[in-house]
């Protein structure tokens, strides 16, 4: 933990300041552009990706533009990847954006932004992302000692130079401070609005229509925050909500837990074999338990606590179990 805190303070410096930003960039104008304008919105199920894309599509519809918005859902509710393509302009054919042709990529989650990076236009693409991490359970699966979280190690520093413009905003944190962390998607809409020519009135009107009535105020307020963040960082002002806290690296871990079995005491009752959550114990040909798969053992102590003959112990001298209340757990 100490390490993390230290990193946070040293990295407080605004990331956006170190990027080659244009002060008054040309905004994307669907009225004058021959090609359709492509905005790709990505995130994880439940974050509000579809809401963001619906707001954008509704604005285009209100302004009489051609617009297609394509999403794939089904498995999305179950913590999966969600993405929504929004294309608008004078003529729109394909509902999906070809790789390398997205003008703006809006990511509601850090790793999801990186996943879709190859959709951005390499020369002019604008990357707007929340620095929020949603760690999937899959990233916490390794049982190897000292294993790190299986989440991307990339930081905004790794992206600079690859993308024309990057805005990594701690949107969830900022929205939480305004009273509702779920409004992070509206904050990113505010950031997105600075890249397009639509007027603020149009944005605010559609957001007011689309969000639940109770949350209109907080949504409009974070929308402004998003706009101000981009404007501030373009001017090079230090802006709130741009710290990026790196993942904690594994510490040096103490010696590996070892399982010692007193063979003479084991009567082969099979209880530990059946109850081992990692299934790393077996009975050998003499009907005595042995650790068949030492790599799989997590040192949970269940076998030790369950053994009616006290035949199993886990590194007793080095690592006493922290709180041996067993009865409740097995009852």
């Amino acid at each position: 933990m100490a390490k993390a805190k230290k990193n946070k303070s040293t990295r407080k410096a605004d990331i956006a300041n170190r990027m080659p930003l244009k002060l008054n960039p040309k905004r994307l104008d669907p009225e004058t552009s021959d090609e359709a304008i492509n905005v790709l919105i990505v995130g994880v199920g439940g974050q509000g990706v579809i809401m963001v894309s619906k707001v954008l599509a509704q604005i285009c519809q209100n302004l009489g533009l051609q617009v297609k918005q394509s999403e794939v859902h089904g498995m999305a509710k179950r913590g999966g990847v969600v993405f929504s393509h929004v294309r608008f302009g004078k003529t729109v054919w394909s509902p999906t954006i070809p790789k390398g042709k997205a003008d703006v990529l809006v990511a509601l989650e850090w790793a999801e932004g990186l996943r879709w990076m190859d959709y951005l236009r390499p020369d002019t693409g604008i990357f707007i992302t929340d620095t929020k991490r949603i760690v999937p359970p899959f990233a916490c699966r390794s049982r190897i000692l000292g294993a790190d979280i299986g989440y991307l190690k990339d930081t905004p520093d790794d992206i600079i130079g690859k993308v024309a413009e990057t805005f990594a905003i701690d949107a969830t944190d900022m929205a939480a401070k305004e009273g509702n962390e779920l409004a992070a998607n509206t904050l990113l809409l505010g950031a997105l609005s600075t890249t397009l020519t639509f007027s603020n009135e149009v944005w605010r009107e559609v957001i007011t229509q689309m969000v639940p009535p109770k949350t209109i105020d907080v949504n409009l307020s974070v929308f402004d925050k998003g706009q101000k963040w981009i404007e501030g960082s373009r001017k090079g002002e230090p802006v709130e909500g741009s710290a990026f806290i790196p993942l904690v690296q594994p510490e040096d871990h103490p010696v590996r837990t070892t399982l010692s079995i007193i063979e003479e005491w084991c009567k082969g009752c099979d209880i530990c074999v059946k109850m081992c959550p990692e299934r790393c114990l077996t009975l050998n040909k003499d009907q005595v338990v042995e650790l068949a798969d030492p790599e799989e053992c997590t040192g949970c102590h269940i076998c030790e606590w369950l053994c009616p003959d006290f035949a199993i112990s886990l590194n007793p001298a080095l690592n006493p179990p922290p709180n041996p209340i067993v009865q409740e757990a097995v009852a």
């Binding site: 933990m1 993390a4 359970p137 916490c140 699966r141 979280i149 997590t298 690592n319 179990p321 709180n323």
Partner: peptide, 29 residues
Amino acid sequence: SKDCNACQGCMNLGCPALIWSDEWYEGRH
């Protein structure tokens, strides 16, 4: 966290609400 022995038994459920913290016990999260 002072009671957790990082045995990962709960992780066998695959529940998306269960993730690793920054703390360690015997080399595991």
